[in-house]
Nucleic acid binder design. Sequence first.
DNA 1: CTTCTTCGGTTCACTGGATGAACCAACGGT
DNA 2: ACCGTTGGTTCATCCAGTGAACCGAAGAAG
Lengths: 254, 254
Amino acid sequence: MSTQSVVTAIRVLEAVSDNQPAGLSELSREVDVPKATVLRVLRTLGELGWVSQSEAQAGKWVLTNHAFAVASRGSSGSVIRDAAMGPLNALQLDTTETVHLAVPDRGYMLIIERLDTPHVLRAFLPLGSRLPMHASSTGMAYLSAADEAFVEEYLAGPLEALTPQTVVDPAQLRAMIVDTRARGYSINEQGLSTGITSIGVPLLGPGGVAAGSISISGPSSRIVPAKYQEYGEAAAGTAREISRALGAFSSKGY
Amino acid sequence: MSTQSVVTAIRVLEAVSDNQPAGLSELSREVDVPKATVLRVLRTLGELGWVSQSEAQAGKWVLTNHAFAVASRGSSGSVIRDAAMGPLNALQLDTTETVHLAVPDRGYMLIIERLDTPHVLRAFLPLGSRLPMHASSTGMAYLSAADEAFVEEYLAGPLEALTPQTVVDPAQLRAMIVDTRARGYSINEQGLSTGITSIGVPLLGPGGVAAGSISISGPSSRIVPAKYQEYGEAAAGTAREISRALGAFSSKGY
DNA sequence: CTTCTTCGGTTCACTGGATGAACCAACGGT
DNA sequence: ACCGTTGGTTCATCCAGTGAACCGAAGAAG
């Protein structure tokens, strides 16, 4: 609409992020903007320290760590992260499975922290991954604590199926949310990725509003139904601890 | 120089990141650009999902998690982070002190990961902090593994003293780098922050080039000289493990 | 209550910065 | 030698970005 050069710049930045060592023509195609413009933007972003030419392959562009610095300094995730790391670490050691910390990002759950299991067979989600809410345990956990309006708006949008097991029916999802509330934790059986099961619990921030969620994930062969309750309760305890640190239960909400 | 609207946009973005809930006038002053322009940029960045109005305080702008998503997906830090988390976790448990993972960012060390000590008295550096290389153990460790040209260039620049104990004399720093190489780990006694001592070790990437560093930090009352060797060797072992995972020692460098 | 200042946000005429088609030279495959 | 690709450059056109001046509202000071 307006400031379209800024739009181009940001889109180029995101394109670089998504295609890592990205070539000029490649980016030009991706963003659908002439090479000349893309190159000029890249140079500008370069001067600002956000991108640079790859040392390994000349002509290829990569994100610098500076982008990470700016982003991590700002995002609301950092305060959650600080409150969560300790308890999360303990949870990982208790369960010996991979645990994730996720916060909402435009209808998706963004993985901002991950502690791995020592097992060789493990769930693997790179940091920065964005998961559809209806297809992840973190997402369903978040929805179970979010306000009704948000949930309805989300369910009204298009719901993609990532695996044959992904639930995309709004009515069914609503029922699952109710179950999650009653149970205290959400369960996702291969709805995100075949062979992976995970258990999620919401985190509450000041005033008790949903702020994010945590999850325990692993191969469906290890995370079997018989363990759901144990893991669910462990995660719920951890979440309560984190939420308290975030000020969810303080008297005035301040 | 060119694409100055992009420059403004990025500067506004960084200003928002630094001043967190930032007001319009405040940002306008900070970036030295008329309010109208700043507002237009903020709206554009808003449409792109990078910033949004704070819910708590109307009119105040904050970074969204989306920025974090883009940045963390891209930066070279992520591959290091993945390789480092496991060993780092073990190091934290062994030493019971706070451990940091840092990567270079324009002459500074950028803290991209932190695992806290359970102790109440602890070193505290928020994620995303940028530390001068000469004033931090991570920085000196990195310099000890960086190539000579980089070191000289860094030492030629202005070196700020953060505490009375900060070493800013290039000759002395050069000597400390040599010591670090011989010893295998760097030592920073209150050079970054009064009362904090830390031990650093460099990480090597493919081809054996310096890629980042790790450190053990804590109050100078706990991290006493008698512990230097123990901690230094523990950290060096961890670093070797991480460097190996990064492919530092693989035959061909590929 | 009246001032005075600051806030977030809006308006609009002007112009210089952004645009993109057309252009290189270089590389790799056939 | 041919072809298609790459990263990168040039430059005339024109519209998007700029910024001074403006507005109403909210505090603070008197």
